[in-house]
Design a protein around this nucleic acid. Structure first.
Length: 803
RNA sequence: GCGGGUGUGGCGGAAUGGCAGACGCGGCAGAUUUAGGAUCUGUUGCCUUCGGCGUAUGAGUUCGAGUCUCUUCACCCGCACCA
């Protein structure tokens, strides 16, 4: 009898063994085909590892281990996304240095990850707060700056009053701060911005060349939000001013009955002298500015606005004089900040027109009465009341009117994107300093590259300020410096970079983690990039995933790296919920601690359960009982040692099962159908138990298949059975299609689609051989004298007799 | 409102248009055991007498539909006045 299964003992043994053998480190040689597997590097929070991390990690660990056995040179790295607010807040509260907190948290995370036995290449660990790392983060920022893609702009930003910090659009969720949930207000600040909008089209086009799960592509496309239309100039009566609008429906130009500009639109100020109700306009503008994004969204249904009395615009196609309004349903930051309103064919305009008693003119026929509702779904509509466009389809009208606009120099074709530039400044301490200084004489001057990194100063107090200044602004000895350009007095930029900075290029660093001459050597990047398979959370789709694609495209454009797209394949795991089906959170009291689970059932069973609990891409509630079931399965596997026969080979009667298992497991790992792969191995073990014996060949096959999921127990049993070199040096097993099927299979016999019997039939029967089965006694009895009208035979599955 | 997704036993979930419920959890029974919250074996969708009914809903295509088409409903995620 074998010893009882003691996961803790064997897991620690093998973890030590792997570490000493350095067997999971990527090979320096570039001879073998490479495979780069990536998981999102964790933010080392004080709370420690969450059960969600191992779901993604185990999934990719399985792929990485399988690829090594398939002969690839595998890079499966790990690191720490360690700048960020929670650490800083903790440091403030406890009067300690964030760097110390970060180190402690990283040490804890590393310990936890090692205890789960992931086959990470620990020799390439990166840490975004390490000066040797963020030197290159700053270097990339300088390249962006030099190419005009980083600029400072006075603009209203999303401001979180609780974090006392500006936020990117991507960090605002339903009008609230993504991190702390506080309501976000708008505040005008001078901010560093990255011109991600210059890359809108490239970010869109790149999606066609990569293998991302569809919902990621869809979400990124929607976020980028390309739309095609035209810009049109409307002259303002009795002035030299023109009001330019953007529209996706230039075909409805004859139906424009008024115009609207955003409250912030500059034309309002320029027309001040003409506006008769200026006080009213100012009051409206102030009210609109005071609204938070949240309020603005809440009040979306009820349209408000004020007419600019004394201002009228002229529709360029028909010379009609129409009024101009300001309203906050028009956004200052999209298009030109002004629209032509066509109430007959736009719901928002329709609502506004109804409320303000403005005319509604139908210009596309084919819908219901436009006085009762806007007709917007105009797919097969025909233009009416539209002069030279009458009788055209919408598509034809669009083309015709744009030609007309161009010819008359009052407009042009235009593409717009919803994507906004990336607000890159954070008024906090624990981030990469932005490597620029401001000189009264020379303006903004980049810190010379040879002086990078710009380090964070030691500070006594990291408290953010209510004034909206970074805590760094209080450190005069750091702020005051000399201008690299003229040598005169200058001041450092005191804002830091957002957390997304370090994570926007870390996958490049892994290719050459200790390089000090570049972000990574070109040769290494050429070999390793792109990432072959990147698994991570859906919540990063329009944040990290988009930002990092942008940086990668940019670095490619300046020749710093050899590949265009960062990631060849992107997949995403579902969330692990609490046992009650709700999101895990401290306040709900349903958090499962990985350490506790591992102490109870072991790391292998923990990994196994995380992969078995359900479909990988779906949210699944945790079940402690289910996790114990996985431990039970490993116990059963363990006891197979006691059922070993001396036979070296797979027994003939087990060949179909063995080959079936290998095929199923091999294919299901690739499709991330981990749950069914594991089910197949469970079935195989059940079969072995049913005949109470297992040959060495059968056990070998099982251990090889199970190894990527449960690496410790399989190595231990492999060694105990004397199967030779450790599994990590073995080849991935292959299967023989010819051995998958037995000679005879069970066929379901249906009469008119209803199953009436099951018979055994030779596997060799083809689709045309169904009639032969009518000779079977059981079938004869079922059919009786009835004439057979039709016969459908599906080889290996069923026979359907239609009488 | 728009976009994406999901709906199958008591539970998590399986099913290239071809035997619905694999596998696991939970339950039940038996064996073994001083004992079992260990292990092994069997059993477990529902109603039942034959047999019937079952994949959110209603229709359709098909010899055959959980799977394809259309309808309705419910829930989840993302975006949200983007002209």
């Amino acid at each position: 009898m074998s010893q009882p299964y003691n996961p803790e003992k064997i897991e620690l043994k093998w973890q030590k063994n792997w570490e000493q053998a350095h067997c999971f480190e990527a090979e320096a040689s570039h001879e073998k085909p490479k495979f780069y597997a990536l998981i999102e590097f964790p933010y080392p929070s004080g709370a420690g590892l969450h059960v969600g991390h191992p779901r993604s990690n185990t999934a990719m660990d399985i792929i990485a281990r399988k690829r090594r056995m398939e002969g690839y040179n595998v890079l499966f790295p790990i690191g720490w996304d360690a700048f960020g607010l929670p650490t800083e807040n903790y440091a403030i509260k406890n009067h300690v240095h964030p760097a110390g907190v970060t180190k402690k948290n990283i040490d804890h995370f590393r310990e936890q990850l090692k205890r789960i036995g992931f086959s990470f290449d620990w020799s390439r660990e990166v840490d975004t707060t390490d000066p040797a790392y963020f030197k290159w983060t700053q270097w990339i920022f300088l390249q962006l700056y030099k190419k005009g893609l980083a600029y400072k702009s006075e603009m209203p930003v999303n401001w979180c009053p609780s974090c006392k910090c500006g936020l990117a659009n991507e960090e605002v969720v339903a009008g609230k701060c993504e991190r702390c949930g506080a309501e976000v207000i708008r505040r005008v600040k001078s901010q560093w911005m990255l011109k991600i909008t210059d890359y809108a089209q490239k970010l869109l086009d790149g999606l066609d060349d990569v293998d991302f799960i569809e919902k990621v592509k869809v979400q990124q496309r929607n976020w980028i939000g390309r739309s095609e239309g035209a810009e049109v100039d409307f002259a303002l009566e009795d002035t030299d001013e023109k009001l330019r609008v953007y529209t996706t429906r230039p075909d409805t130009l004859f139906g424009a009955t008024y115009m609207v500009v955003a409250p912030e639109h500059a034309v309002v100020d320029r027309l001040r002298a003409r506006i008769q109700n200026w006080d009213e306009v100012v009051a409206y503008r102030e009210a609109a500015a005071r609204k938070s994004d949240f309020e603005r969204t809440e009040l979306a249904k009820d349209k408000t606005g004020v007419e600019l009395k004394g201002v009228r615009a002229i529709d360029p196609v028909n010379g009609r004089s129409i009024p101009v309004y300001i309203s906050d349903y028009v956004l200052a930051t999209y298009g030109t900040g002004a629209i032509m309103a066509v109430p007959a064919h736009d719901e928002r305009d329709w609502e506004f027109a109804k409320k303000f008693g403005l005319p509604i003119i139908e210009v596309v026929a084919g819908g219901e009465d436009v006085q009762k509702a806007a007709y917007t779904d105009v797919a097969d509509g025909v233009l009416v009341n539209s002069g030279f466009l009458d009788g055209l389809s919408v598509a034809e009208a669009k083309k015709t009117i744009i030609d007309w606009l161009v010819e008359h120099k009052v407009g042009e074709r235009k593409v717009n994107y919803k994507l906004r530039d990336w607000v890159f400044s954070r008024q906090r301490y624990w981030g990469e300093p932005i490597p620029l200084v401001y000189c009264e004489k020379c303006g903004w001057v980049p810190v010379p590259e040879e002086q990078l990194p710009v380090l964070l100063p030691e500070v006594d107090n990291y408290e953010p300020t209510d004034s909206g200044e970074s805590p760094l602004s209080k450190i005069e000895s750091w702020v005051n410096t000399t201008c690299p350009h003229c040598g005169g007095p200058a001041k450092r930029e005191t804002d830091t970079m957002p957390q997304w900075a370090g994570s926007s290029w870390y996958f490049l660093r892994y290719a050459d983690a200790h390089c000090d001459t570049a972000l990574a050597r070109y040769d290494e990047l050429k070999y390793w990039m792109p990432v072959d398979w990147y698994n991570g959370g859906m919540e990063h789709t329009t944040l990290h995933l988009l930002y990092s694609r942008f940086w990668n495209l940019f670095l490619y454009d300046i020749g710093a790296i050899p590949n265009k797209e960062a990631y060849q394949k992107r997949t995403s795991h579902g969330m692990i919920l609490g046992a009650n089906g709700e999101k895990m959170s401290k306040s709900r009291g349903n958090v499962i601690n990985p350490d506790d689970t591992i102490a109870e059932i072991g790391a292998d069973a923990f990994r196994l359960y995380e992969m078995f609990m359900g479909a990988f891409d779906q949210a699944i509630p945790w079940s402690t009982e289910g996790a114990r079931g996985c431990r039970r399965f490993l116990e059963r596997v363990w006891r197979l040692q006691d059922m070993l026969t001396g036979e070296e080979r797979v027994r003939p009667e087990m060949e179909a099962s063995v080959h079936g298992m290998i095929k199923k497991v091999s294919e299901d790992y690739e499709r991330m159908k981990y749950n069914t792969a594991i089910a197949a191995m469970m079935s195989f073990v059940n079969e072995l138990y049913a005949n109470s014996r297992v040959s060495r060949g059968e056990l070998r096959a099982l251990l090889l298949c199970l190894n990527p999921v449960a690496p410790h127990i399989t190595e231990e049993m492999w060694e105990a059975c004397g199967f030779g070199e450790p599994i990590y040096k073995q080849k991935w097993p292959t299967w023989d299609e010819g051995k998958l099927v037995a000679d005879e299979v069970e066929i379901a016999v249906q009469i008119c689609g209803k199953v009436r019997a099951r018979i055994m039939a030779p596997t060799s029967l083809g689709r045309e051989d169904g009639a032969k089965l009518l000779e079977d006694e059981t079938v004869k009895k079922l059919v009786g004298d009835k004439p057979v009208k039709k016969l459908i035979f599906v080889p290996g599955r069923l026979l359907n007799i239609v009488c």
